[in-house]
Design a protein around this nucleic acid. Structure first.
Lengths: 211, 211
DNA sequence: GATGCTATTGAGTATGCGACCAATTAAGCA
DNA sequence: TGCTTAATTGGTCGCATACTCAATAGCATC
């Protein structure tokens, strides 16, 4: 839909152009996979020539990596807004509710994608490691706040955050294969695991439960 | 090392040739990644022309899928031999010992690789789903045997097997990225989770412990 | 309105992939 | 021993990628 006639040029400020390139890369990466984030694909999406994208990203790896970071930062802010410090149990209830909906599927695919691709692309790997730490710290902060408020009970918020993320990544690992076969066994696994890890009663973090 | 002079032909029985092609694909896929399993790469490895591999696998997807299956079947037999039905706790102790060694890293990478690649390759996906079920059933059998012998206590061996695998896949998800950052928090997570799931005392499945 | 800077084009190179195929030749069989 | 079959060769083609670069043209400034 972003099509102009051939030859017609739209000249933009470098910062703006670069920004829309990264945003496009993020969208393509999130919906179709990081392998589809190519100079041509992003250029087509924006209705410009591939050479232009190549001008802003002389190494395509960097484009993929920045697209990934852009996508995950946006998603994290939607899942765990940095703003609300009050009511840690409510924050986690909302969080577990969101990640168990099908809208989170593309995010699961993106993480799986990025973690595998990091095997071959060092630039991407650095970004993935940084985002993993960022996500973990964001959860850690909520846990720590809950512990301080007397809502949660756990020895080490960092360890709890790591383990909760491990549980999440374990259940989402099957997003492209046998998700359905396992739904019965893993449906509430992450939430109940988190409740146990935080010294809560079963169901305490259930978003769909009354309360 | 598998180099012959140019033009020299070695004619083999179709079954034998096909078998060594699949075995080579498995090795390349396990050590370098399934993306490296190409007609040319496998042909070079065997010292034959690419056209020959294409003759046995008119669709390259099938080669990748069969290579994956070959690799995972071999690994599963090494981790959980079908033979030993006696001593379920001992079987699991050995299993957890093996998967926490660095020799299991390539297998972790392979699963991560295959689960992502399944997004784009339906033929591979079918094989991955089948292997996931196979691995799960193999664990389920050990759990069921342990329950029957009075060693373990759990409501549903299948559910327990699924959850143990989820824990494993969660911890191995970081194999290409920030494994080290998490080692402290996840080192014994799989084992202790399994012990809880099977109604065992902490450390009961520790291979390195005395006993 | 003219000028200079540079964002942007459009075509180029090189590499790797799967797929295809006629010619060759090794090996089994009559 | 000679014949037949088919495993194997050694190329080809089309397509997609990243990357390079001289030429072009939009925009701000004078």
């Amino acid at each position: 839909m972003t099509s102009r006639g051939p030859g017609k040029r739209v000249r933009k400020a470098p910062a703006e152009r670069r920004n829309e390139i990264v945003t496009t890369a993020a969208r393509v990466g999130l919906t179709e996979g990081l392998e589809c984030v190519t100079l041509r694909r992003v250029a087509d999406e924006l209705g410009v020539q591939a050479g232009l994208v190549g001008h802003y990203f002389p190494a395509a790896d960097k484009l993929v990596a920045e697209g990934f970071t852009s996508a995950t930062m946006t998603e994290l802010d939607a899942l765990l807004p940095e703003a609300d410090a009050a009511d840690p149990p409510g924050t986690l209830r909302s969080f577990f509710g969101l990640i168990s909906s099908t809208e989170f599927d593309n995010v699961s695919r993106l993480w799986l994608n990025a973690r595998h691709l990091s095997r071959y692309r060092p630039v991407l790997r650095e970004h993935v490691v940084e985002q993993e730490l960022l996500w973990c710290r964001r959860i850690e902060r909520v846990v720590a706040a809950g512990v301080a408020a007397g809502d949660f009970r756990c020895a080490d918020p960092w360890v709890a955050a790591v383990r909760i993320l491990v549980a999440i990544d374990g259940t989402t690992a099957y997003i492209n294969t046998s998700t359905d076969h396992r739904a019965a066994a893993t449906g509430d696994m992450v939430r109940t695991f988190a409740e146990a890890e935080l010294g809560l009663a079963p169901g305490a973090l259930d978003a769909s439960a009354a309360g």
